[in-house]
Design a protein around this nucleic acid. Structure first.
Lengths: 170, 170
DNA sequence: GAAAGATATTTTAGGCTTAAAATAATTTCT
DNA sequence: AGAAATTATTTTAAGCCTAAAATATCTTTC
């Protein structure tokens, strides 16, 4: 929508060192990725609410446990969901209160709590997951299988690159 | 990590209608997109905090205003940021309190408030934006320019597809 | 085996977020 | 003009989220 920006005839070195602000392509890419994700995420959130009266964080937490029937510690959950420890504590608390989760201290290490889905939690999650999978499929229905795989590969590369650039920070 | 899944020789119609659960590719794609975005977002959030003691939502709001020097109403901000109205009210309130934003009722329509950056807000944002742009460039530094453009195009297509599938909902 | 350090979780304080209800102002329809 | 509907914003209640400090437990080191 902003025409074609001039190809910046200045040589690369100057651009990189003296004009550190010349990274518009990456910035646009990031904003588009964020928009796309937020759009889909908001849709999922609303549909989970309308159809199952559940929040996205609770759904995500249950999804992690469903992938690992043996159960996970709070720390493992926190790491896999990429959220803080205290956050997981609170969400688990709610789900335990709803009878969807089981939480018991590990016998070997009394610091850790192992969390898993109850029978009710499993059957509730299965229903939600089936609907969720269909919503997501509809979300990407304009993309061919090949495009989906290209996108997957490029996101994989972006993820690796991002992790590297964060590197020493986390 | 799970070998190559069979190319599903079943015709598309059958797949879509009779086997609504067979959409693992799209699900993996969505999860990867979410992971990638969350990873980058968490990095940006921490660096904004460490370097400028500012939160990501406040930075995002200022970015919207910087793109539109004439100012925006709260409703426009809410729409562009894809967050709720009440949320914008609260964030604007904080930024006005910090002297970074100016908020005044519109002369034509006394319901609306027009918000814009103050001189302090502009100069503060410029500094943050320059650093942010470099962080983002570093985040994607493993991707070639061509890969970046491919990713941009595919995300554009995904965005359109997602909007269509949400369509009547919002 | 006791002190020091590391690890797992919870608590706390502050901030973001939403949906829904409430206010306030404008527009539309008789 | 006056009533009804619409639009813009704020408020409210509940929940998510983080960083940092506090607790409790385990491990290591001397």
């Amino acid at each position: 929508m902003e025409g074609s920006s001039p190809p910046a005839p200045i040589d690369r070195e100057t651009t990189a060192t003296l004009r550190p602000g010349d990274h518009k392509t990456e910035l646009r890419l990031w904003l588009r990725m964020l928009t796309c994700t937020t759009l889909i995420e908001n849709g999922v959130r609303r549909r989970l609410r309308d159809a199952f009266d559940v929040t996205l964080p609770r759904f995500d937490l249950m999804a992690q446990l469903h992938k690992t029937p043996a159960g996970l510690t709070l720390g493992e959950l926190s790491q896999r969901m990429m959220v803080s420890n205290g956050n997981v504590t609170a969400i688990v608390e709610k789900l335990v209160g709803q009878g969807l989760l089981d939480r018991k201290p590990s016998p070997q290490d009394r610091r850790t709590q192992v969390v898993s889905l109850t029978a009710d939690g499993r059957s509730t999650f299965s229903q939600m997951a089936a609907a969720h999978e269909n919503w997501i499929a509809a979300t990407f229905s304009d993309l061919s299988r090949e495009e989906e795989e290209q996108l997957m590969a490029l996101l994989g590369k972006a993820k690796t690159s991002a992790r590297k650039s964060l590197g020493d920070l986390s």
